[in-house]
């Protein structure tokens, strides 16, 4: 598990609007890479191109190359559904399926991909919930509704649901922005554990969070409203936060704009 992501010359459009221009970056396996930058700079858009989720929005398309261990995700004949089985995603707001129990939420990915065997499902639910640091809190009420949990627990449930299908990469789109500080801490601890098994890419508005959890940080910016967002630089997190190469990065992390 865990694969390397190569992005080359990625442009993303929403209809005729060019949202992101010329992004090239490399994400190493078993690392956490953080995307930071001001609102509207395209960091979430780039994240969503890594598992072709942007295609859910009508009119959105990308050009360029996104490769997972050398395999182009946008190559001819590649099924976006298959891509998303390899590249999972955790969203800004916890979104457990309200019609399902805790157990069914975690098992949903496997079940809906055709796994029926009860013991396989049981095993996967337990190991995924353990992997998301949620097992001890919910093991006695697996048949309760997923929406009965607190916000932080729901987000960990969503992480458990994402890792249950054994993806290679986990994308996180501001996973803590709707959570309180204690739940945020729990998720950050969890991200540290997840990188032992998975490649993690996280979008965050919180620069302390980026410096706490990530190994590499990519800074995105846009020159003006209406212009496409661009990757300014990507480097080791320590370097970005102590000694960035570009002036714009320094201005952003020291709070001079954004």
């Amino acid at each position: 598990m865990a694969k390397r992501i190569d992005v080359e010359n990625l442009d993303v459009y929403y209809g005729s609007f060019k949202a992101v221009s010329g992004v090239s970056l490399v994400v190493e396996p078993r690392t956490v890479t953080a995307f930071i930058g001001p609102s509207g700079c395209g960091k979430s858009t780039v994240l969503r191109t890594l598992n072709r989720m942007h295609e859910v929005i009508p009119g959105a398309y990308a050009t360029g190359k996104v490769a997972l261990d050398g395999v182009d995700l946008y190559g001819a004949g590649v099924d976006p559904v298959a891509v998303r089985r390899l590249v999972g995603m955790v969203f800004q707001r916890p979104n457990p399926f309200p019609s399902m129990s805790i157990y069914d939420n975690v098992a949903s990915g496997l079940k809906l991909n055709g796994v029926r065997d009860k013991s396989t499902l049981d095993e996967s639910v337990e190991s995924s919930l353990r992997g998301a640091n949620l097992w001890n809190e919910v093991k006695d009420r697996l048949n309760k509704a997923g929406t009965s949990l607190s916000g932080g627990q729901q987000q960990r449930l969503c992480i458990a649901r994402a890792i249950a299908v054994k993806p290679e990469v986990i994308l996180m789109d501001e996973p803590c922005s709707a959570l309180d500080p204690i739940s945020t801490l729990a998720i950050e601890d969890l991200i540290q554990q997840l990188k032992e098994l998975y490649t993690v890419v996280i979008v965050t508005h919180n620069m302390q969070q980026a410096s706490r959890v990530s190994d590499r940080t990519a800074f995105f910016n846009l020159e003006a409203q209406g212009l496409p967002g661009q990757l300014v630089e990507i480097d080791d997190t320590e370097t970005i936060f102590s000694n960035p190469t570009k002036k714009a990065t320094e201005d952003y992390i020291t709070g001079r704009f954004g």
């Binding site: 998303r84 949903s108 994402a162």
Partner: peptide
Amino acid sequence: REAAYALGI
């Protein structure tokens, strides 16, 4: 819907 798509459903 997005949560389900992200699971490869």
